[in-house]
Design a protein around this nucleic acid. Sequence first.
DNA 1: TGGGCGATTCGCT
DNA 2: GCGAATCGCCCAC
Length: 192
Amino acid sequence: MPSPPRLTKAFFDRSVHAVAPDLIGASIFVNGVGGMIVEVEAYHHTDPAAHSYGGRTPRNSVMFGPPGFAYVYRSYGIHWCLNFVCEEEGSASGVLIRALDPTAGLDQMRQRRGLDDARALCSGPGKLGQALGVTIAHNGLPLDRPPFELRPSRGDIPVEIAIGPRIGITKAAEHPWRYGLKDSRFLSRPFK
DNA sequence: TGGGCGATTCGCT
DNA sequence: GCGAATCGCCCAC
């Protein structure tokens, strides 16, 4: 039996604004726990809202590296948030993974999150990080081998992409660089 | 070396 | 809808 298709580094070696909508409907698993991506946001180093905007620091150095790697950062001193590095090396751009439709490892997610409601397991970047067990230990790891596993959208299911402004930022808040699966029950917030 | 801030979440009103 | 919790990161002093 052939192994299922995987997202390769070439997939991420494109504009964040091409990669981000293409990730909707794809699936991510961390040690077998994960589901279908339903919400992401794009960040580019020319964007004042991006962590890489002010130049390279120890924290954001992975963003300045080659595409196809995980960039993990701590949000509000509490949450771990997962990004995919995109574009050519030095572009310092990435896509923040904001919400999943959980399909695998729900029991482990429930245990980590301390919740039963499937809708609340991965409906936000911090929740998603907790449910998948993402920590700083994943920062800089390649996305094309374990513990990560990324599969492209099945293609046989039509995917309607919703677009809107990004959430929770103050700088460059007007740009419509949030992408989601239209009307998904697992979004962090609905699209207007 | 210290203080302000943040790509958030949750509980309470 | 609003505010507290909570702490690593980063820049200014």
